[in-house]
Design a protein around this nucleic acid. Structure first.
Length: 190
DNA sequence: GCCAACGTTGGC
DNA sequence: GCCAACGTTGGC
């Protein structure tokens, strides 16, 4: 069993779009990076995937999916009308491939990128590397499980242990809407 | 909107 | 093979 993370801009295709598919399954088209493609080639049915919302506010892991079909040609590369058309791709040499993934679970709350960064156990995760742009990337089993645990915990800052030396009655939980998260940027791009 | 990081392209 | 120019990704 292998573990992966796949990015999608929610304005293009979100985990909620996946949930609306008749069989909660979609083909992961549009990957136009060789390294990312090679990772998809390595995927096996049953592998688990973190579904990440990039270019979102905030960027976050939104849930999980499983691989249900191994790599096959991404036909959108052959379609001149398609946004991800690649003139180098042909029937005989499609160049680009895709896999099918099926929604497993939408997290009760998305795990924002800054929380992932603040989680010591996730040190070294590819997603957190400065300048990381890979849209398909491997995730270690350990990191995958830590993310799952975060998903079922209250938002960061709400479950801190009491300060040492004395017991403290649970404080009113902090607003989840920190000013950072609230900061509104205009949507650009598709 | 800005820009750092990174991948690709093409001239040489 | 080198590398500058260019395009894209994606956080902020």
């Amino acid at each position: 069993m292998q573990y992966w993370l796949m990015k999608s801009e929610p304005e293009a295709y979100s985990i909620h779009d996946l949930a609306k598919e008749p069989t909660r399954t979609t083909f992961w088209d549009g990957v136009r990076n060789y390294q990312a493609r090679n990772f998809m080639r390595a995927m096996k049915a049953g592998d688990r995937v973190l579904f990440y919302h990039s270019n979102a506010d905030p960027p976050a892991v939104a849930g999980t999916a499983t691989v249900v079909r191994t790599a096959y040609p991404d036909f959108t590369a052959l379609d001149p009308e398609d946004k991800h058309y690649d003139p180098k791709a042909t029937q005989d040499n499609p160049i680009w491939e895709m896999v099918d993934v099926k929604l497993e679970r939408i997290f009760p709350r998305p795990i924002p990128l800054d929380e992932l960064r603040a989680t010591p156990g996730l040190k070294g995760m590819e997603l957190l590397r400065r300048g990381s742009r890979l849209s398909v990337q491997p995730v270690s089993k350990e990191h995958f499980e830590i993310v799952l645990r975060l998903a079922d915990k209250p938002a960061a800052g709400e479950a801190k242990p009491a300060p040492t030396g004395r017991t403290v009655v649970a404080k009113r939980t902090q607003s989840k809407e920190t000013s950072k998260h609230r900061s509104k940027r205009k949507r650009q791009r598709v």
